[in-house]
């Protein structure tokens, strides 16, 4: 009985990285240039905003909920960054992070205290974020002043020894999230909520507070993703981050964090995001139209959910 995992269970844990390696090899066979360090580095840098958003999403899925507001919060963040840059400089980053925390916390309060299912509460909060973004931007695409951008966020855009700073920042963010998840009481509580919420309640932990925290962090990471995206594109608009939501959810689930929560985590999402990146760029390599991606990822999402979900936690599937 002692820790005897079945073969499939053990395999399942390794499935994400095996997928990643096979995908890399498969594309590498068609075009060996794909595996060149430069190309891989570009590939990784390209998905930095997605990775940051997916890391935030991971925390919410880890507790068994979902966050559908990430894309709207990122959209709003691109607008807020661009607008506040002239006045606040690098402080605009802090403003945006605070806004993300706030919106995430609202989702958390509505879900945990008002008992509204998270897919509805985050959809609604996403609507509010969308309105804020449209209002703040006047429904236009906005541009940053090159000089101000360089002054405030130039450090994100540079490279050191050929490695883009953007990538380093993203990995630092992943490291922070990993630390929260694995080394802090909050992360342990998230895991417990995902694994067995009634046990957490019966252990005298204030579950609601931790749920709100998870949503707030997810909002914050989404805002940081928007911030980085906006700095990269030197501007903001209420639709700039369109198309992020699906790949972000796919990255989390393909990485091996199931919809029911409790297992997986940010390192899984790191691998999941790389799988998304490889699939995406290999589709370009193989001349599959961009529209095919959406179909493909939608189907992958279904397969990923179906294979990872823990049905013993869902007595009735609604």
């Amino acid at each position: 009985m002692n820790g005897g995992l079945t073969y499939t269970e053990r395999m399942r844990r390794h499935f994400p990285w095996i997928t990643l390696v096979s995908a890399l090899l498969l594309v590498g066979m068609t075009d060996i240039n794909f595996l060149s360090p430069e190309n891989l580095l570009n590939l990784a840098t390209d998905i930095v905003p997605l990775l940051v958003m997916a890391v935030g999403m991971t925390l919410v899925i880890y507790i068994g909920s979902i966050d559908l507001s990430s894309q709207s919060i990122a959209n709003m963040a691109t607008v807020l960054t661009t607008i506040s840059l002239p006045a606040l400089g690098v402080g605009s980053g802090l403003l945006v992070i605070a806004a993300g925390l706030l919106f995430g916390a609202i989702s958390g309060v509505v879900t945990a205290r008002l008992k509204v299912p998270s897919f509805i509460s985050t959809l609604a909060v996403g609507g509010i974020a969308l309105s804020v973004g449209q209002f703040a931007s006047g429904q236009q695409a906005l541009h940053m002043d090159a000089e101000q951008r360089k002054h405030a966020f130039g450090w994100i855009m540079g490279t050191t020894a050929g490695i883009p700073h953007e990538l380093i920042v993203a990995l630092a963010i992943v490291a922070v999230a990993w630390f929260i998840q694995n080394r802090m009481t909050a992360g342990r509580t998230f895991k417990a909520i995902g694994a067995a919420e009634p046990v957490v309640v019966a252990s005298g932990i204030r579950v609601e507070r931790y749920k709100i925290l998870a949503f707030a962090l997810s909002g914050m990471f989404a805002a940081i993703a928007g911030l980085m995206f906006s700095v990269r594109l030197s501007g903001g608009s209420p639709t700039l981050a369109e198309g992020f939501l699906l790949p972000a959810i796919v990255a989390v689930l393909v990485g091996g964090t199931p919809l029911t929560g409790g297992v997986g985590g940010v390192t899984n999402t790191l691998i999941g995001t790389m799988i998304v990146a490889v699939v995406r760029s290999s589709m370009l390599y193989l001349n599959i139209p961009a529209t095919g991606q959406q179909i493909f990822f939608g189907l992958v999402l279904i397969v990923a959910i179906a294979t990872t979900i823990d049905r013993s936690k869902l007595r009735i599937v609604k």
Binding site: P117, Q294, I295, F296, G298, L301, I302, I305, R311, L314
Partner: peptide, 17 residues
């Protein structure tokens, strides 16, 4: 046996594509 919100959301993405 996938929760309907997620099954239908995924298929919605497929439909748009």
């Amino acid at each position: 046996k996938i929760p309907s919100f997620m099954a239908s959301l995924s298929l919605g993405f497929v439909g748009i594509g």
